[in-house]
């Protein structure tokens, strides 16, 4: 996996994710405050021990802040405020440490679940092309559970990319992969983020992830 071509075209010149004057509180207690602008292709790394509010930040960004938390501040994606937009309308992709492929759908089914509606043949061709670009050619009709961990991670990445997000959030995305696979997958994910010029936020507790991201690092306590 040296070079990967761009998987789909969803980039614009002005893509950016802006977190403006964010303060998240839990029961009157400030959990974190943040004021950041992430340009397309940049990866902001958030580090910190568990309980420091990393996941809560991701929850706020995806519009899924749990009960008991309150937030002040605004979120802009490509210049538009999405602070109060419903989760599924935000166009913010999400990658977890587990691939979380839907077990009742095939590999192709998982990806087409995420894709915008369109002609069936075109969608199938797009899926096949994307799969072969990450070394998974011909696995369209496989059951996700029958794939290896690295293969599942790549399908999860394709699923996010083909949903044509405008930004990407990574929640400890590589922590369950062994070191060889970790490097390969990381390289693949970061390449795709840069090629698509997507603003990205990565939450991690691994220094090598942070170094590889080559972006700003914020530590929460």
């Amino acid at each position: 996996m040296q070079k990967h071509e761009q998987i789909s075209a969803a980039n614009s010149n002005t893509s950016s994710l802006v977190i403006e004057q964010l303060t998240i509180q839990r029961q009157q207690q400030v959990l974190l405050s943040l004021n950041e602008t992430i340009a397309g292709g940049d990866i902001l790394t958030i580090m910190g021990p568990s309980g420091s509010g990393k996941s809560t930040l991701l929850n706020w960004l995806t519009g899924m802040l749990p009960k008991g938390f309150s937030a002040k501040g605004n979120l802009y994606l490509n210049g538009q405020s999405i602070t109060d937009t419903a989760s599924h309308m935000r166009r913010i992709g999400l990658l977890y440490q587990d691939p979380l492929l839907f077990p009742h759908l095939t590999v192709a089914g998982n990806i087409s679940f995420a894709m915008p509606a369109g002609a069936k043949a075109q969608r199938q061709a797009d899926i096949s092309q994307a799969l072969s670009q990450v070394g998974l050619a011909g696995l369209e009709h496989r059951n996700p559970q029958s794939l290896s961990g690295g293969q599942q991670a790549r399908v999860a990445l394709l699923r996010v990319l083909l949903s044509q997000p405008k930004a990407i959030l990574l929640d400890e995305p590589f922590s369950k992969l062994d070191s060889q696979l970790r490097q390969e997958t990381r390289q693949l994910v970061f390449e795709q983020i840069r090629q698509h010029k997507l603003p990205a936020i990565m939450v991690t507790h691994d220094q090598s992830d942070a170094d590889a991201a080559q972006g700003k690092i914020i530590s929460l306590f």
């Binding site: 995806t62 989760s87 999400l94 977890y96 979380l100 839907f102 679940f113 995420a114 699923r159 996010v160």
Partner: peptide, 22 residues
């Protein structure tokens, strides 16, 4: 796992679609 719903929503699926299809 609620993260299945979170992922599906982040992929653009509405609550109804998540309920029926996931």
């Amino acid at each position: 796992d609620p993260r299945f719903s979170y992922v599906a929503a982040s992929l653009g699926a509405s609550q109804a679609k998540i309920f029926w299809q996931i």
